[in-house]
Structure formats: C-alpha cells, structure tokens
Design a protein around this nucleic acid. Structure first.
Lengths: 228, 228
DNA sequence: AATCTTGGATTGTTCAACAATTTACGGCTT
DNA sequence: AAGCCGTAAATTGTTGAACAATCCAAGATT
C-alpha cells in the first residue's frame, strides 16, 4: 500500500550494524524517485511495518534524514518529506551562488575533469534532443555537481548533493515546468569552453548571472503556481 | 566520574520531545568545552547512565552528532569524538578557501555587518594584549564565522560552525601552539579595512593567501608533533 | 454555529531482552 | 618471555512491548 514497498527478506545486503543506514538510504531513494512526494507524512507505524524494521531504528533513520534536512521533523507531530517554499529556494541559490563560482574560480581544474564535465553536458544535449526531460534534468544536476567537484572537497560535494536533492523536491512541486533546464544547457557548453580557455573569471561571472536567472525563473514559476 | 556530569533532575528545561536534542547539545558542549577530548570513546552504557537517559535516545543523539561529523561512529566498535588528522585539516581548508573568499567577494556587505566584524577584531586584539589565548582563539573563530555570515546563508553558516568545531578539535590535539592566532589578528584588521574601502577582490585574494599560510602552519605543527 | 469534552491515534521515551561482534583474558605452544 | 589461539565477558545493533505526553477527530454542550 505504501509507496515504499516492504523489503523484508529480499535483497539481503543488510546484515548486522547496517539496517539504520539501509533504511535511511531506502527513504532517500524513495523521495528522489518520486514515490514519496513533498509534504507526505511519514508515519512511524506504517513505515516501520512496511520496511520491516523496528519503530526504534526507523526513528534513528529519521534523525539522520532530518539532520540532512531531507525531511522535516515537527515535535509531536511527525516527520514530513520537505516541501521547499520560496524562502528555501532563495537559500538554495544563496549557497549555489557562493559555492559554484568559487569552484570555477579557484578549483583544481584538470583536463580530465573538464572531459567528464563535457561528457555530462553532451549527455544533457542528447537528452534534450531526444525530448527526455527527466534525463536532461539529471544530466544538468550532474553537471553542477561536477562543478563543485572541482574544489576537490568531499564536504562541499556532499553539501551540493543535499542542495540538489532539495532542488528535485522543488521541481516536483511544479511539474509544469518541463523546459526549465533546456535554456541552460547551452550555457553549460559555454562554461566548459571558457574553462578550457582558462577564462575562469569570466566563467565565474557568467555562472553567477546564470544562477541569478535560474533563481528568478524558479521563483516566478512558483509564484504563478501559488496564485493559480 | 565521567567528564559529563549527571544531569538528572537538575536544570529541568527538557520536557517531552526535546531530550534527544538536549542530549546532543550536551555532548556537543562537552566536546567544545574540552571535557571530552578527541579520540575519547563514548560508551553507551556509561554515558546513558551519566546523562540519565535511555541508551536508545543516547543512540539517537549519536546519529545526529555523527551526521555533523562531530563524532565518528565505527560499526560494532562504538562512537569516538573526532580526532582530525592531516587529511581532515586539508579538507577543512579546502572548504574554507572556497567559502570565505566567496563570501568576501560576493556577499551582501553592509556597514552594519562591517561594524560587528570590526568589533570582533577589536575583541581579538584586546585578548591578545591581555595575553588570553583562549579568548583570542574564540574571537578569531567568531570573526571568520562573521565572514561567511556575509553570504546571508544559514546553511553555509551552519557548515562553517561545523568546520570551526572541527578546528577546535585540531587545536586541542596540539595545545603547544599558543600563538597560532596572534599572527592573523592583524590580517583580519586589514581585511575589514579592505572591505570598507570596497576592495573586495584584493580582500578575497589576501584571504586566500592567509588561509593557505594557516593551513601550512597547522600541518607543520602537526607533523612536528607527530614526529616527537 | 461555535466551543468544550472526550476518546483514540501518534509521537517521545524507557526498559528489558537477544543476536552479532568486538574485546579481554588465560592457557598453550615454541 | 613472546606469540598465538579459544573461550568468556563486555559492547554494540536491533527488536518488542510498555507508558506518558501530545495531538487529532469526533460527538456533546451551550
């Protein structure tokens, strides 16, 4: 019945001392996959039964997910999958506007990394040409993930993962913005070209404008959707 | 017996639905205060008894703290307060070298924020003149915290809090570096001056050199200490 | 119709147990 | 004495049931 089907017995990669992380990952995937939509309440009783774990360990997974702010915990009310609002979007872009240009400006840029970035961009282009919105969105996110990867910092990388996960929730809330990413694919092409030419400052500046525009567009879409 | 004294009954600000956060905060303070030194094992039985809470809720606090990487959890072995090594230091400075200059370059810099920054710097100077190493270290950290505060992002602010907490653990591991911060107080003065003059690019560049130097010095100290 | 009360459902926390694993200890071999 | 092995004790990971506190959804009251 629940979106997250029962996992007892199957799989079998979860032995001792791993089930909490396993469950957390399970829920994370459920959210990323769209089975658990923003605002959904995650009942302890239902979920623990559905996942075949104790209410106690589920609770522990909840605290981990809450710490990642993938999920919002309201005291005595329960946990809900996060549903970002305008302020959350602004915050997301505050972070991105700081981290991504910094990575471009000061990151450790190697030809190898540029190659993988270019490959990701091409994947996005192919998806756009094929009309596959989901793939394009994925590739686009992967691209920006690669951008902060230029810093070489695992911490920043994980933070970006969190931010992108939150972005996915935003996108879900406005399913009627299919061509949001298509505008920006060309910009990514240009960005890689700039980096190859060593024009990092210019790249960073353009990336910031890019992010400003994306934020404005998102907020506009959201406002339009809220007014309807 | 334990560094974290029993808290049963006393205080009384922890009612229903708050004890987990309370306990986590308690441990956090214990680490920040130096009662819980890096590498210390946090036994579930001892700590739960000392804090007067169930082993289960303590466990929940552990997962939260582990997510903040204040504490390291090794499966089936227990949790230990983190003791950062050279690679951790490099990672810390990868993050700081990205975030802090970004804040200086692109942050929302208001006269008001500059005033509070200047006040913090003066606090550091006063502490230096008074010979109070601890106060100087505190003020110095507060200063850098204010720097990333220029971004206006709560997320980045919290990340910086985490990083600074880890830095404190680093400092603890080498208690014999009392004048580590004193070199840099003057640099902070200069930084504020640069920002007041609107020379943001110069400020960012100098801050990056600053951070490079600090990282090198820390790593040097650590290597020297490891060799002894 | 709006408010109050009541009963059930849900969350937060504790306790006691057990399996899996690590750790400590003693005996054995060399 | 040093090193290895095996068993016992301690510790972690997980479960299940219980209870207090809080929230929620009805029905009763005015």
């Amino acid at each position: 019945m629940n979106a997250v089907s029962g996992g007892d017995g199957s799989g079998g990669a979860a032995e001792h001392a791993h089930t909490t992380a396993w469950i957390a990952s399970r829920i994370r995937n459920g959210i990323a996959g769209g089975e658990l939509t923003p605002g959904t309440k995650l009942s302890e009783q239902s979920l623990s039964a559905a996942l075949g774990v104790s209410r106690n360990t589920l609770r522990q997974a909840f605290t981990a997910l809450a710490e990642e702010s993938i999920v919002r915990r309201i005291p005595n009310r329960g946990v809900f999958v996060a549903s970002p609002g305008p302020e959350d979007i602004r915050e997301i872009y505050r972070v991105r506007r700081a981290i991504e240009p910094a990575a471009v400006l000061w990151g450790d840029i190697t030809p190898q990394k540029l190659d993988t970035m270019e490959a990701v961009v091409q994947r996005a282009q192919a998806a756009r040409d094929a009309g596959s919105v989901a793939d394009m969105a994925d590739a686009n996110q992967a691209f920006h993930r690669e951008v902060v990867g230029l810093t070489g910092s695992g911490t920043l990388g994980r933070m970006m993962d969190r931010v992108l996960a939150e972005m996915r929730l935003v996108f879900y809330a406005m399913s009627s913005a299919p061509d949001f990413h298509s505008h920006y694919v060309d910009r990514n092409v240009l960005l890689v070209r700039r980096l190859r030419a060593g024009e990092n400052e210019k790249a960073a500046a353009e990336l910031r404008e890019y992010l400003d525009a994306a934020e404005a567009e998102l907020l506009g879409h959201l406002a339009g959707r809220a007014a309807s």
